[in-house]
Design a protein around this nucleic acid. Structure first.
Lengths: 214, 214
DNA sequence: GTCTATAATCCGATAGAC
DNA sequence: GTCTATCGGATTATAGAC
């Protein structure tokens, strides 16, 4: 029955969200479902298949948080709305964010299933689209949307990682403010204007970075 | 003999750097050293103690890469030199960078030993000092050095994480350029100057972010 | 200080009865 | 579809002989 498979997946998600990857073994999963271990193998080929389904759930939930912003009226609202959705997601579901950034071999896979890679590409593309339309609206400097998206992605991801690792000794509410303020700093730039002009003649001359003086 | 303890630590580092955390069990460590498992317990109280020593090695090596930049003559040289040292470290020793950002409970510890936390504080302070002296030299905008350091730290850390997770499908050499170009983008800012001015009236009014128009 | 032997747990996965 | 029973393996850690 596919009904039972869904029940198993639900228990697997509960177990993972509560106790992490180590807490999600086939035996514990069976106990949570209320059956014995071999029964699970009637519905899933093995642990790797279960983890793949859990990972799909994580991506679906993440996408829901992001796509909600598409209902906003302006490019800026959609951009900030997506950022707010991202922040809400990582704070409300740290473990789901975590499994999305766990190396496949740590999940017992050589590489991710194609459909999951497709979900990741779609999310990546979502951010590039938000950046591009903010460039069109002269909110972001004109340039290569993909590279600008990577810069902002790296900053957001790094902030979250540092927070979740305990490198930033702040409360949840303080982190929300820190995250936004740091994002604003990225948008406005941390270098003085005089030095930013010098920068163009240095590293920027070697590569296509999409930076313009505006 | 403390001689033997050092030999064990050396083997533990080799084992970890080659095969990761899962590859560093007491049994495998014993085999690498050339003795049986119980012998290790004469020199280390348990696996957790071994991991703590490996982690100390990681911090020591990282510090060496960073502090080399202190010999440079100008604030800018020291700043960029430290950035280059950071980049070299993460590319040459990804596993050492990784264990430095592994949650303590994943190393079998409730929390990190105090001396290791001290090493982390020293590194954190090193970056704040680099930022502060660049503010003094009007390279970076005046403001709160600690907060600006966090922004740049998050960006650098995020870039590395995305690269090491395979989210950035680039070669090592391409990543080096991408890392520097993205850092330049952070320094110069991604928003248009017009929008950056608007930003001050929005999120920045709520918090002390240290952003100034210059 | 190192050994043999072993305790006590955990894991993923399977065979075969019902 | 689920069960009992089990295989084959891993792990940390300890007891006691030498």
């Amino acid at each position: 029955m596919t009904d039972q498979r869904e029940r198993i997946l639900g228990c697997a998600c509960d177990l993972y969200l509560k106790h992490g990857l180590d807490g999600l073994s086939m035996r514990k999963l069976a106990r949570e479902v209320g059956v014995t271990a071999p029964a699970i193998y009637r519905h899933y080929g093995g642990r790797e298949e279960v983890l793949a389904d859990v990972l799909r759930e994580a991506h679906r939930t993440f996408s829901r948080y992001l796509y909600a912003a598409l209902g906003e009226p302006t490019q800026l609202d959609r951009f900030f709305g997506a950022g707010q959705g991202f922040l809400n997601f990582v704070i409300e579901h740290p473990r789901w964010y975590s499994i999305m950034h766990t190396a496949p071999e740590h999940l017992g896979m050589d590489k991710l299933p194609e459909d999951i890679e497709g979900m990741q590409s779609a999310i990546h593309q979502f951010w590039i689209d938000r950046v591009r339309e903010c460039m069109d609206a002269t909110i972001l400097k004109d340039g290569n949307p993909e590279k600008t998206a990577i810069t902002m992605w790296a900053h957001a991801h790094g902030m979250v990682q540092l927070y979740q690792e305990g490198c930033l000794p702040v409360s949840e509410e303080e982190f929300r403010m820190l995250f936004k303020a740091s994002g604003a700093r990225l948008m406005a730039g941390v270098a003085t204007e005089a030095f930013a002009r010098d920068l163009e003649g240095m590293v920027l001359s070697e590569t296509d970075t999409g930076i313009q003086t505006g």
